[in-house]
Design a protein around this nucleic acid. Structure first.
Lengths: 107, 107
DNA sequence: AATAACTGTATCACTTAGTGATATATATGG
DNA sequence: CCATATATATCACTAAGTGATACAGTTATT
């Protein structure tokens, strides 16, 4: 039973409704629902300064464009790549999306 | 000539390659390339505390789950919805993705 | 070759988001 | 009624985010 990327996405996206239905029918209590919810999330990998630069180069975009795509400032992207500052949680999430889905994932 | 969501996405995703090709063939100079790049980005709308709460409710998830999905802390999401703090740029981008693409856009 | 423009580096000081802890309130379910 | 989940409300600390500026290396145009 292999899970294709497509089915995996759909599974995760509909977990709440599914759990809700199960609860409504009486198969699981409400307390268990949140456990299912939390189970679906995997932690975001950390992005070092070199990884960020490599990721940007892979997509052939300048620091300015990356900043626009992530809705942040040019100054911030610079300091990420130099290693002066580290991306915040949401920023890491966006970098992860860019990494896995490409630019399309951020449009 | 109406642009379907699909074709629009593809257009934006391949702008760089297209512009690169045009430049290689000699149709446009390199200076114009970045203009095309910047043209593709539209600013992210602002999300008030009430809009954030409404967005979350629409997806039937708790503050804790929203925090996980955005890779931020529960404390932060709380203060967004109360109006104490405002989401950072990258956080707004993630909220925008959730708004337009649903939970699938963040997986 | 000289100049102009694009891209990235390097500081700086300031503002504010992000965070963890804790105490409290309010449903909601067993 | 009691336990739990969810949300509100502060508080103080840390660090990310930001804008400005000056400078350097590269590339394009004339």
């Amino acid at each position: 039973m292999k899970t294709s990327p497509k089915s995996k996405t759909r599974l995760l996206a509909s977990v709440h409704e599914t759990a809700q239905d199960l609860h409504n029918v009486g198969f699981i209590d409400k307390r268990r629902m949140q456990e299912y919810e939390v189970l679906c999330m995997q932690p975001i990998a950390d992005y070092s300064s070199t990884r960020i630069r490599a990721l940007r180069k892979r997509h052939h975009i300048s620091q300015a464009v990356l900043a626009s795509v992530l809705n942040t400032s040019l100054s911030t992207v610079r300091q990420w790549e130099i290693g002066d500052k580290r991306p915040s949680g949401p920023s890491l999430k966006l970098l992860d999306i860019l990494d896995r889905k490409g630019l399309e994932g951020l449009l």
